[in-house]
């Protein structure tokens, strides 16, 4: 399969960071008061994600394993600073409406998660596309949530009034609880579609999350779940491994004795 395309598909649909991996919930819930804010946040994150993935992948043989997290943070923080300065210069309105959430991209767990689980153990080009795919998935999700919230909470879409004249905005959707409602509903819809395809015996894994089952016989590389799965062909980088099977058994025995 085409590696770049596969990565994009993985990020947009299969392992969508918001709807499937449930990562980066803080910006997801906080900035999606309108479709424009959601899109802006998503695209900003995408730029940082793609660049940091690319550079971490390039540096993966240089970064010592033990200090990899601080090293990732330095790379990510540098790109966030660059992006924020650019936003201040060219899109001051967006910068103002996103506010503190731009600097907070540094600690966005999607970026750190992709660095850790993909970019650190894969070549640069797939890593770049992994970042773009994940970023697009994030943008798509944030724009969807923002669009619903803007539509119900303010009667607008991308700033243009679309609802009929007599529509009374349901203000709760513009506030924090509304973000949870909309996110929950969108995740529910997505799960309903997946479950239906599963029941009908269709290849649901095409639109499924981190594929849920049979990691052993999967030819896919760089899937998040697979990364933490002991049985896969591809072992994570040295030092990242979970305790060996023997150690796991010891732990279990201890628990049973209690």
């Amino acid at each position: 399969m085409n590696k770049a395309g596969e990565r994009l598909y993985n990020g947009l649909v299969k392992e969508n960071p918001t709807f499937v991996l449930m990562l980066g919930m803080c910006p997801t819930l906080a900035v999606t008061t309108s479709a424009m804010n959601g899109l802006g946040m998503g695209l900003t994150t995408m730029v940082v994600l793609a660049l940091s993935n690319l550079f971490i992948s390039l540096l993966r043989k240089v970064i010592p394993n033990r200090v990899r997290i601080p090293a990732f943070i330095v790379v990510i923080a540098s790109f966030v600073t660059v992006v924020q300065l650019l936003l201040e210069a060219y899109l001051p309105a967006l910068n103002k409406s996103l506010g503190v959430y731009i600097p907070l991209i540094v600690v966005n767990c999607i970026i750190l998660g992709r660095a850790e689980s993909y970019a650190y153990s894969n070549p640069p080009v797939p890593s770049l596309f992994d970042g773009i795919g994940m970023g697009l998935g994030f943008s798509l999700a944030l724009t969807c949530i923002g669009a619903f919230r803007e539509l119900l909470g303010a009667g607008k879409l991308f700033g243009a009034a679309v609802m009929p004249e007599g529509f009374e905005p349901i203000r709760i959707f513009g506030q924090a609880p509304g973000a949870f409602f909309v996110l929950a509903m969108l995740v529910a819809v997505q799960n309903a579609v997946k479950n239906r395809r599963k029941r009908e015996g269709k290849p649901y894994e095409k639109i499924d999350s981190g594929c849920n089952e049979d990691c052993m016989n999967c030819s896919d590389q760089g899937c998040t779940r697979r990364f933490y799965d002991m049985g896969g062909e591809k072992q994570p980088a040295e030092g990242l491994r979970k305790p060996s099977d023997a150690a796991m058994e010891l732990i279990d025995l201890d628990k049973e004795e209690k």
């Binding site: 009374e168 349901i170 203000r171 709760i172 959707f173 506030q175 609880p177």
Partner: peptide, 10 residues
């Protein structure tokens, strides 16, 4: 409370 937050005036 849902209605109170959504439609404070009404």
């Amino acid at each position: 409370c849902f209605l109170l937050i959504s439609f404070p005036t009404a």
